[in-house]
Write a protein that binds this DNA or RNA. Structure first.
Lengths: 220, 220
DNA sequence: TTTATAATCAACTGATCTATTGATTGAATT
DNA sequence: AATTCAATCAATAGATCAGTTGATTATAAA
């Protein structure tokens, strides 16, 4: 066998890549990007059995992508650092660029719901500074609480119809949720536009905002 | 089964990650980063059977990471675009950050050979501009010919001892080769320093230089 | 048309990965 | 000490992956 040092290093890199090589693990990472969580909560959100989620999380841990801590009888997992989000972003960029299948899915589902250009982080910062927009966080309340964009209003998608009154109808809404492919923001923009309100969505989500080093607010 | 659009997209991303999840494929990508190559040449350099290399290359192609073209009876593979190098760099960064094993290998092998700080691309550009350094490309001649740093001198590692006279002993040498873990540059720096000559190495290699959009020279 | 060469394809073995099941560990509660 | 709950561990069956071997396709040359 005897590998040279380069092969040994490449084998380690390959191990990290392989840890990213399963949709369930990517989804776990997306949720962990919102903040730390217990195994049970993650399993429920991603739709996995507890044992299965536990094992996927351990693979991520072996790859150095997540870390965990024990608090009483709960074990909380979190992303190892913001660099993980950067790696996920790089993976997404490359996949979007050269995978026809990604484009097909996006056109077939997402593009129908949002024919308007998404807003970049820079655009959002500018518009917030000029006081022209409402930033809307459509994630569940607990995720909002763990960290959100400064000044954002939290109305989870399911409550949006009932709480429209909370949004000034003359201000443009910029909605965001967990990431570039989280459907909540798409649905929220579609719902608002159906009411004749101006709305667009942030190009990606909270983890990317945080990984970019931009300020984050919490509710605790 | 019925997956939502997000799960379908994540499954595609996972497919790309899985394509990176094997040391042989990462090594193939490293070689493709130097320029396009035929299957036979790649198989020989990476030490794979022809059929095995062919199959790995096809996995990379399905993942949209490489492209190929036919010319006569040869099929030449190349990286799909410079973004692939960026993704590989992101993978390397993350792996270095949180994998104790990578650090151990690096200390055990590489650090022994090069206790001096590597030179960043920006540093190299500055030093070249001030005319103080010789840039040394220690890759094989054919790789040099397909693309190299402007003004670089090509002396493949194996010929370095015999061709020392070609290097001005008073100018610092900055050596580079295929990438951050290519051993050639480490060996070259060690050999030069053993002769009492000032030498350091570029932090990564030719593909990263090219992907950064910096100028590239060719010999054809 | 025959021959040679580059690469892929097909089939197969052994290895690794995924998800489930049930047992086990660790920490808090009774 | 006994109980309860979160999470991991262990064992397993089915699926996918890696690498070899030999056959096949595509192109160029004899």
């Amino acid at each position: 066998m005897s590998m040279g040092p380069k092969q040994a290093i490449l084998a380690e890199f390959a191990g990290v890549a392989r840890a990213l090589g399963h949709a369930h693990r990517l989804e776990l990472l997306e949720h962990l990007g919102q903040g730390e969580r217990g195994v049970d909560a993650l399993a429920a959100r991603v739709g996995l059995s507890l044992a299965n989620a536990s094992q996927h999380l351990q693979q991520l841990r072996r790859a150095g992508l997540v870390a965990n801590r024990r608090d009483g009888k709960f074990i909380y997992y979190r992303l190892a650092d913001d660099g993980v989000t950067d790696l996920l972003t790089a993976l997404r960029r490359q996949s979007e660029r050269n995978l026809a299948e990604v484009d097909r899915i996006r056109r077939g589902y997402f593009a129908d719901r949002d024919s308007f250009e998404p807003v970049s982080r820079e655009d959002l910062l500018e518009r917030v500074a000029s006081g022209l927009v409402t930033v809307l966080d459509v994630r569940p309340q607990d995720e909002f609480g763990q960290g959100h964009l400064p000044g954002a209003v939290n109305i989870p998608l399911g409550e949006l119809q009932d709480r429209l009154a909370e949004l000034d109808p003359d201000r443009e809404v910029i909605a965001y949720c967990r990431g570039a492919y989280c459907v909540f923001a798409f649905e929220a923009v579609a719902a608002l536009r159906a009411q004749g309100r101006p709305a667009r969505r942030l190009v990606d989500g909270f983890p990317e905002w945080k990984a970019a080093g931009l300020p984050v607010a919490t509710s605790f």
